[in-house]
Computed example of a mutant assay.
Amino acid sequence: MRSRVWSGTAAVVLGSLLAVGCGDWEKDAPSAGAGSSADAAPGTYPVSVTDCAGVRTTFSAAPKKIVTSNAAALELLLRLGVGDKVIGTGFPPGEHTLPGALDAQARQVKVLSRTVIPKEKLLGSGADLYIDTFASMGGMGGSGMGDAPTAPEFEAAGIHHIYLKSTACAAQSRTPVTDLSAVEADIASLGAVTGTTARAKELVAGMEAKVAAVRQAVGDTAESERPTYFFFDYDAGTKQPTVVCNRQIANAVITLAGARNVFADCAGDYKQVGWEDVIARNPDWIQLGVRDRGSEAANKTAFDEAEQWLKSNAATKGLTAVREGHLLRVGSEPTTIAGVRNADTVEEIAKALHPGKVG
Rank of each mutant, 00 (worst) to 15 (best):
A101L: 08
T194R: 03
A259M: 11
F231M: 12
P334K: 06
G274H: 10
C266Q: 13
G33L: 06
A315S: 14
P63E: 07
W285Y: 15
G23M: 03
V20M: 07
C245H: 11
A29K: 15
G206C: 12
I87Y: 05
T115Y: 10
E348F: 04
R215L: 04
A106F: 04
G146H: 05
T194G: 02
P149E: 06
I117A: 01
N342T: 11
T196A: 15
G43P: 09
K271P: 05
T115V: 05
N251Q: 08
T301H: 08
A170K: 07
V82E: 06
G195W: 03
D84Y: 10
V290T: 13
V111A: 07
L164D: 00
V346R: 04
A321Q: 06
G94K: 09
R56S: 15
R323K: 15
D24M: 09
V262L: 03
W25T: 10
G90K: 02
A34M: 12
P92Q: 03
A321I: 02
G289I: 03
V55E: 05
D132P: 04
M207F: 10
R107T: 13
A236E: 14
I187P: 03
A151Q: 13
T44R: 14
G195A: 05
P30N: 06
A250P: 01
F232R: 04
T9E: 12
S125Q: 10
G43F: 08
D265R: 09
D265A: 10
S332R: 12
S60W: 01
V330N: 11
G359Q: 14
K357D: 02
A61T: 12
T115A: 13
A209M: 03
G35A: 15
G124C: 10
S332N: 13
H160K: 15
F303L: 04
E324L: 09
L77P: 01
W275D: 12
G191F: 02
V67G: 01
G139M: 10
S295L: 06
R114F: 09
S16I: 02
T178F: 04
L74N: 01
A338T: 15
T167N: 05
V55N: 09
A71C: 06
G294W: 03
K351Q: 13
V116R: 09
K119R: 12
A185R: 03
N261T: 01
W25V: 08
S69L: 11
N299W: 05
R226I: 06
V20K: 14
A157T: 11
K317G: 00
N342K: 07
L319A: 02
D304S: 14
D284P: 04
V358N: 00
I349L: 14
M140H: 08
N251G: 04
E223L: 12
A343V: 05
S60T: 13
D128V: 11
C169D: 12
V5Q: 06
V177M: 12
V20T: 15
K357G: 00
I286N: 04
P149R: 00
D147F: 08
R199C: 04
D265Y: 05
D84I: 09
A168N: 02
G15S: 05
W275P: 10
C52A: 15
Y270L: 13
V67P: 00
G88H: 00
S113F: 08
M140Y: 06
